[in-house]
């Protein structure tokens, strides 16, 4: 399997949000405006790339040699939480404008299960360092694609005449479901 296949596979075929149902919380929570959705997506790409690199190193050089692989969940959460904190501090210092634009979404990434999901997936797929990072970035790009498309649809739905029972989240969930069906079309892209 080459890198391109891993990337496309993670971004489209096994889209984290729409076919694996990971990271649904920010997907529904931060998708009311395209602008904030893009901000969230970029932050997720950055954090996932960093997290994939860090978890891969910790997994291969600490967990495996010491034979304590069963502790991977705790170790990965530790890494991700630290990373998000670090990224937040760094952005606050280096680019206050970006920090303000991302706002609360930055710390929210800590609780984004897609980040942990990618790390765990890398581990079970036994990807090496490069493949891990590519897979992570691919998954994050897929997440960004899904959330931005979703936000665009939701912005337009705002102006539609929706029956009262479907207003708000019910409509959003229906939309997400239809999007998931559409993304199913990508499953033939790569023959497993």
């Amino acid at each position: 399997m080459n890198l391109a296949v891993v990337f496309v596979g993670a971004a489209l075929v096994n889209n984290f949000v729409l076919s694996q149902f990971l990271g649904i919380c920010p997907f529904l929570g931060v998708s009311k405006k395209v602008e904030t959705a893009i901000g969230m997506g970029l932050a997720v790409i950055f954090v996932i790339a960093m997290a994939c690199a860090a978890t891969n190193v910790v997994y291969n050089f600490i967990l495996v040699p010491l034979d304590i692989i069963y502790l991977y969940n705790i170790a990965f959460i530790l890494i991700i939480a630290t990373l998000v904190q670090l990224v937040e501090m760094f952005i606050k210092k280096s680019s206050p404008t970006l920090y303000q634009a991302l706002g609360v979404y930055l710390p929210l990434i800590t609780t984004n299960c897609a980040v942990l999901g990618v790390a765990v997936l890398n581990m079970t797929s036994e990807y090496n360092f490069i493949y891990s990072v590519v897979n992570g970035v691919g998954a994050a790009v897929g997440f960004t694609l899904a959330i931005v498309l979703f936000a665009g649809i939701r912005e337009r739905i705002e102006y539609n005449n929706i029956p009262k029972a479907f207003q708000g989240f019910p409509m959003a969930l229906l939309t997400a479901g239809l999007m998931a069906i559409a993304f199913l079309g990508f499953s033939g892209l790569i023959s497993q």
Binding site: I62, I68, L71, L78
Partner: peptide
């Protein structure tokens, strides 16, 4: 001992 040292150490380090 290994889990305590490794995870504890990582925690302290981070």
């Amino acid at each position: 001992i290994y889990p305590i040292i490794s995870l504890g150490g990582m925690g302290i380090l981070f």
